[in-house]
Design a protein around this nucleic acid. Structure first.
Lengths: 213, 213
DNA sequence: ACCGCCGTACATCGAAAGATGCAGTCCAGG
DNA sequence: CCTGGACTGCATCTTTCGATGTACGGCGGT
């Protein structure tokens, strides 16, 4: 039995959803929330398997509510919305939603979606998938410019100094943070510049940035 | 009528796919390719609506073939694979595939997928969707640290110098590139450091990086 | 134990970076 | 016209950086 919490502020729509869900023998509606805060609170109490979450809700929007439910590992979240806006889609997915459906979804597809997400899989409305793929593909792949392998040539101390360089610290700052003389910092800087074939601390800082240090 | 090209090297599997596709009245199999190169060539000749593409194929793998088909806008591509590997999934999607299915998909789901993609929508196997979402959510969102608005305070010359700083150039290098005296470069550096409230060129370089300059 | 090697550490010194003062140019508004 | 402001440009001076030489403790090899 899949235990579902329905979070939707418009009571008519909520009633419709509940009706559809109740029509399935393997699905049980364990609660209904009318806003985001209530949804999170009820998820904590009821521990449903899945929360069917509307995006637009008073007090706490669906995306934020999703973030909280996911953060506390209360349940999987299937987000539902009327408007197919990138802002909602990407926001919901980043918040950790397991699925994203539009409200014009057929009743049987909605039930299939609930079962899919309950199985631990993910599901996204076809109309949305294209843009998700496009967005995903557009993400810049880390350039080979930043090759973490070069760091292997550095000693522990040198890596620490490099990390500080990435923050834009001066030798004096670094000396204070790592508790050593400024002269020593200079030694490390000089050595790591040599090993990495760089000509100044500025380039080292840029490299550190690219490596995400 | 949806015109489909099937690209799959194993003839038994290919026959099975064709059989399934032919069972649908609204789908027509216009061609069969046994490797990636053939798939691209046939796509060019036949101009199908959709290519059903296996990932593992001789001569030219499915991901590369997909990239080419998409680049030439020959058709939409629905990628099919036996193995649910991240490498295949993300590779195929980055290559521009409109959908990604596993070979254990039911016949009716396969047909539904073909129709979905032909409608210009996207479709991803539920088992894969979760990881796609996770991968997507993991993408670092540009920090508000890098606020392009601060650049408005800078003059043209200062922005040029900042850009050079981002490349790790020295004052002498910048002077050469922008054709001005080193002393002048220092002035600009000093001024932009002040405006951006930074304490050294290193921090300016880091900022330039974050702004993608 | 001895040696060489590596990592760490510091001091010195020439080179670079950065702050500051000032001059020429261009333009908008009085 | 001319005046004030913004931008660009250069020179001077102090601070910071970076290269180099040196030193000391730990570690593996013969």
């Amino acid at each position: 039995m899949i235990r579902v919490l329905v979070a939707e502020d418009q009571s008519a729509v909520r009633a419709g959803l509940v009706l559809i869900l109740r029509s399935a023998p393997d699905i049980e509606v364990v609660g209904e929330a009318a806003d985001g805060e209530q949804a999170v609170a009820m998820a904590r109490d009821l521990r449903p398997d899945l929360v069917l979450m509307d995006v637009q809700m008073p007090r706490l929007d669906g995306v934020s509510a999703t973030r909280q439910v996911v953060a506390e590992r209360l349940a999987d979240v299937l987000v539902l919305t009327t408007f197919d806006l990138d802002e909602y889609v990407f926001g919901a997915l980043r918040a950790g939603a397991s699925g994203f459906l539009l409200k014009n979804t057929e009743a049987k597809d909605l039930l299939a979606a609930v079962r899919t997400v309950a199985r631990g899989e993910g599901l996204i409305a076809p109309a949305v998938t294209r843009r998700l793929i496009a967005e995903f593909a557009a993400k810049p792949v880390r350039e080979p410019t930043a090759d973490p392998a070069v760091l292997d040539a550095l000693t522990r101390r040198e890596r620490e100094v490099l990390s500080c360089l990435g923050e834009g610290l001066s030798n004096a700052d670094i000396a204070a943070r790592l508790d050593m003389a400024e002269a020593t910092v200079k030694t490390h800087v000089s050595r790591l510049l040599g090993k990495l074939e760089l000509r100044s601390r500025v380039q080292a800082a840029v490299l550190a940035q690219e490596l995400g240090i």
